[in-house]
Nucleic acid binder design. Structure first.
Lengths: 200, 200
DNA sequence: GTAGAAAATGACCAACGGTCACTTTTTGAC
DNA sequence: GTCAAAAAGTGACCGTTGGTCATTTTCTAC
């Protein structure tokens, strides 16, 4: 098995991924063409399909590369967290990391919605580590919930508020900062975890 | 000025809009082609572009038609609302109306994200009545906020939670019901409006 | 009945994601 | 060094799609 050829192949993939990432950032996922990606890295269009089955697969790879680094870090900090506030801090630091800069969060959301129309792709995305699964969330906050409210639902609500903020950000209405949302999420989760629902 | 011709033109538009709406519901916005829309109504593709500049414009028209009916109703009920709970009830009834059935809410979100990549389209969508503007929300709930928290931010948070739920729904993770989210929103808004933010 | 205007048509175009037969480069055995 | 097989790289090509436009059909006013 030729190490040198494998290395070359990996190098090409890295170059294409870098080119793609830069383009996704500036133009979004849908508006970036495969030809632009390969041109940007100095290859022909056909080369792209030696490495990925489709543009979607490339995106999943970029996503995995972007997030893989943070799993360990997160696991360690979760172990240290003692209060509900601590846990939510870790979670939101992770979410902030995911979206990084503004443009990336746009692309991220764009792809999420795009993936929803394709059950196979949707499955892969849900399986990917990006979405903080409700099970993990429940495990993390479960011991802090004293009201009897479902911990998994709390996780889903937290994710909903986060992803809703991505839309807010996307449409540039500019009312909320990331910090506003983070604090509001803490307030919501804490109230539900301690007192349960407001009676109507 | 020919009344009969105008009427015929309007009739054609209605037929095309009906065909489009059915297709959007079953296949989503992106995957529905213009040719399918015109075929479904018994016209040729070129006819479509006599009535709309693009598929995007058609969607905005459908949106306006779908929501126009509910403005009056909403205005009346808002006038009658006395407590914060009443106001949020009206707002969430309106939001429920917007998304109607599950499929339409998918399409709705799909288009929102699609529009984000085009500044002109984004402007039109934000201007459209679908997004409950934060100003209106502030006007509606302002008098019930005693904690000093910005009423406009409350509106934006409410919208974020709603739109985040659309994503949740889209990805079919199935943890939350619409009712769950509605109650969680009430809890969040009420806590922030009365007590302000949780201290961390 | 006829001229002009509006509605309807479908062949056509450019752009795109993806395919594939072909060329170039690399590798390992001799 | 030679050579054959395998991998990497190429770009012309395909099907689909949103959108255009010269042409035909239908309707209206007189």
């Amino acid at each position: 098995m030729s190490t040198k050829q494998q290395e070359k192949s990996l190098q090409t993939m890295r170059e294409l991924m870098d080119s793609a990432q830069a383009l996704f950032n500036s133009k979004g996922f849908a508006k970036t063409t495969v030809a632009e990606i390969t041109d940007g890295a100095g290859y022909a269009k056909g080369s792209f399909y030696r490495h990925w089955k489709s543009k979607d697969e490339l995106f999943l790879d970029i996503l995995a590369a972007k997030l893989g680094n943070y799993r360990e870090e997160r696991a360690r900090r979760i172990g240290e967290a003692e209060t509900l506030e601590d846990v939510l801090d870790v979670i939101w630091d992770f979410l902030d990391t995911i979206v990084g800069d503004r443009n990336w969060s746009k692309v991220f959301l764009e792809f999420t919605v795009h993936a929803a129309g394709d059950s196979e792709l949707r499955r892969k995305l849900n399986k990917s580590i990006y979405r903080l699964s409700n099970d993990i969330f429940a495990e993390m906050v479960g011991s802090h919930v004293i009201s009897g409210y479902s911990a998994k639902k709390l996780g889903a609500l937290n994710t909903a508020l986060f992803e809703g903020f991505l839309i807010h950000d996307l449409l540039e209405t500019g009312e909320l900062s990331r910090e506003d949302v983070r604090r509001a999420a803490l307030t919501m989760i804490r109230t539900l975890a301690i007192s349960g629902e407001a009676s109507s």
